[in-house]
């Protein structure tokens, strides 16, 4: 007996039936819940940007665009500029990227190209991922008590014998760029290694077969075929690692020396935007807080730009994969 095939009331008769009123209600409710969760996150982000931006407005009025080209940070005279911090942020992140990028990509090759037994590779991979779980402040302490003392003799030897090279132009008196960069490189290593590994794993098996079928040695297969094929993904990994390095705060504030200067020397102290914020906030007056907010806006623009670039490169590599 079929009355109305699209009516909800016929469940249980063995015939297909429409969802009940309750089921439809749950479906709607679930949809609103997901909308709400997404909406809250997005509006929170926008609110943070708005709040920082509006707090920065007085400093923007006082300092204008000169803020980005001045190296003075003088609370007594209310003169603020962040050129040295922008330099320190980009320079330290770039050096960390060179170091961490090289090791991260090498590790990804080592883990994915058949050098290791599958299970051993899994163990190593977990260990590398654990590096990401170590708190920033612990890295900072490790840097102070281990990296700086270990670096000091090396640095003074380099400065003595190769002092004419700008990179070794000064002595390492304690905290400075070199220890900060080394620690920063270790901190971005898990990001770079994990995303590069994904890039290598995304390479279809048939590409590997093609390479070895041509009679390549393992090195030739990796350098001539696998690396170029994974290049886009690796590029994305490097950009995202760079983004992490730009925003890193605690370990850098502890290690970089917080000196308001621009120097090429690896052993001189420097300052980054994030370390400026961390070290100056606690004792800042109203005018300085506004300047710090302005600096935060600058940092935000840099990191958002870099992360967007990384996401763009990654999405392009995924699209190429699909072809």
């Amino acid at each position: 007996m079929k009355l109305d095939p699209f009516c909800a009331e016929q469940g249980g008769s063995g015939e297909p039936c429409a969802p009940s009123f309750l089921e439809i209600l749950c479906d709607r409710g679930f949809r609103w819940l997901t909308f709400a969760a997404g909406g809250i996150v997005i509006s929170l982000g926008l609110y943070i940007i708005f709040e920082i931006g509006s707090a920065a407005v007085p400093a923007m009025k006082d300092n204008g665009l000169g803020f980005f080209v001045s190296t003075t940070w003088d609370v007594a005279r209310n003169e603020f500029g962040i050129l040295a911090e922008i330099w320190g942020t980009l320079y330290s992140s770039l050096l960390a990227l060179l170091l961490g990028g090289f090791f991260g990509v090498s590790i990804a090759i080592f883990f994915t190209q058949g050098y290791l037994n599958h299970r051993v590779a899994q163990v190593f991979r977990s260990i590398i991922q654990l590096l990401a779980a170590i708190p920033s402040v612990v890295y900072g302490l490790w840097g102070i008590y281990v990296v700086i003392p270990a670096l000091r003799p090396v640095a003074s030897w380099l400065n003595e014998h190769f002092g004419f090279i700008p990179f070794f132009g000064t002595k390492l008196s304690g905290p400075g760029l070199a220890p900060a960069v080394i620690v920063l490189a270790i901190m971005i290593l898990p990001t770079v290694a994990a995303i590069s590994q994904d890039a290598f794993k995304q390479i279809p098996y048939k590409v590997k077969e093609a390479a070895y079928g041509m009679g390549t040695t393992r090195r030739e297969a990796i350098m001539l075929v696998m690396l170029p094929t994974a290049a886009n993904g690796i590029m994305g990994a490097l950009v995202l690692g760079f983004g992490r390095a730009l925003g890193e705060t605690m370990a850098l504030a502890m290690l970089i020396g917080n000196a308001n200067q621009i120097s090429l020397s690896l052993f001189s102290p420097a300052k980054t935007l994030a370390s400026l914020l961390a070290s100056n906030f606690p004792e800042a007056g109203a005018v300085e807080v506004s300047a710090l907010m302005y600096a935060a806006v600058a940092l935000l623009i840099i990191t958002v730009g870099v992360n967007a670039l990384g996401a763009f490169i990654m999405s392009r590599s995924k699209r190429q994969e699909a072809i």
Binding site: P204, K206, E209
Partner: peptide, 8 residues
């Protein structure tokens, strides 16, 4: 091979 597999 079965699947055409030119290099990128």
């Amino acid at each position: 091979f079965q699947q055409p597999n030119p290099f990128a």
